[in-house]
């Protein structure tokens, strides 16, 4: 009995030692020399592996930071300025501060304003639907409403609003990683500066059709009427292909265009409700 026990203990111990030695030599033999700073930079990063920086993941980004000559072209959208600052100070480099951004959905054609013209009976995916046809409303630019952006979001920051059938961004959770921008086959979602006090103004439409065609398909479409361009005191609005676009770097948030727009296609977000002249302002995220 005792001999059995002793034999078992000895043989197992020997086996363990031999295997440990093999493992040790293999690890030595195939050791990969890596810059130890990559580990440290990776530790500073948020670790979301969202790919918003353009790298495959946080480790690849850390490697990129360590190898890079300057950090100007690199940015972690999730960590924002603070993380980039600590990465820069660790690596002894400097980094320019970037304005925080947020994803905005540039379509406001909900079920009431954009009449259905077709029924769709296929796999519920915007990508599949967009390769098939223009969409089940008259507007061939607008949101298809199957939520590819929702699936793509790693931060639970975008959801379909069942009332409007449009996606809605949670500005507190959104890290501006850009995953939804890439996921949307219609290229509706854009990253824009968050703006002072989170206030921002944007054209919530990307329909490039002529005014009449666009209006027929959707009552809240941008019809390219030039009114907003004329009223803007800062030359922040440009109109091309029958579509207005507000440059967020030039916009001073005066809100003149919002009142001027005849189709309410220009949205203001997070502004106080106007008291003297009650204009139907659509505050999405309150």
């Amino acid at each position: 009995m005792t001999t059995t026990i002793i034999f078992t203990i000895v043989s197992l111990t020997l086996l363990g030692l031999v295997l440990a030695l093999i493992l040790y030599f293999v690890a030595q033999r195939f050791k990969v020399e890596e810059d130890p700073r990559i580990d440290d930079v990776e530790a500073i990063l948020p670790g979301a592996n969202c790919g918003g920086c353009g790298f495959a993941g946080c480790r690849a980004f850390a490697e990129g930071c360590v190898k890079a000559e300057s950090l100007d072209a690199l940015s972690c959208p999730v960590g924002g300025n603070e993380v980039m600052k600590s990465v820069a100070s660790y690596l002894g480099m400097s980094v320019a501060e970037k304005a925080p951004q947020v994803a905005v959905v540039r379509c406001n054609g909900n079920c009431d304003t954009r009449a259905k013209t077709n029924h769709y009976d296929g796999y519920s995916s915007c990508a599949v639907m967009s390769t098939l046809y223009s969409g089940d409303t008259g507007c061939s630019y607008g949101c298809l409403g199957h939520g590819d952006c929702v699936v793509s979001c790693s931060f639970d920051a975008i959801h379909m609003d069942p009332r409007t059938g449009l996606p809605e961004v949670d500005q507190d959770k959104c890290t501006a990683c850009g995953a939804c921008v890439k996921a949307c086959p219609k290229m509706i979602i854009e990253l824009r500066n968050k703006g002072p006090k989170n206030r921002r103004i944007f054209v919530s439409c990307i329909n490039k059709d002529k005014g009449g065609v666009a209006r027929k398909a959707c009552t809240v479409a941008c019809i390219g009427c030039l009114k907003c361009q004329k009223v803007c005191p800062f030359e922040a609005i440009t109109i091309s292909n029958n579509l207005a676009y507000i440059d967020f770097n030039k916009c001073k948030l005066c809100r003149k265009c919002v009142t001027e727009c005849p189709t309410h296609a220009i949205w203001e977000v997070n502004f106080p409700i106007r008291l003297p002249k009650p204009v139907e302002s659509i505050n999405v995220e309150q």
């Binding site: 077709n118 029924h119 769709y120 009976d121 296929g122 599949v128 098939l132 089940d136």
Partner: peptide, 9 residues
């Protein structure tokens, strides 16, 4: 007008 059904083949 009739709303046509659309689906992939």
């Amino acid at each position: 007008m009739k709303k046509l059904l659309v689906s992939p083949a």
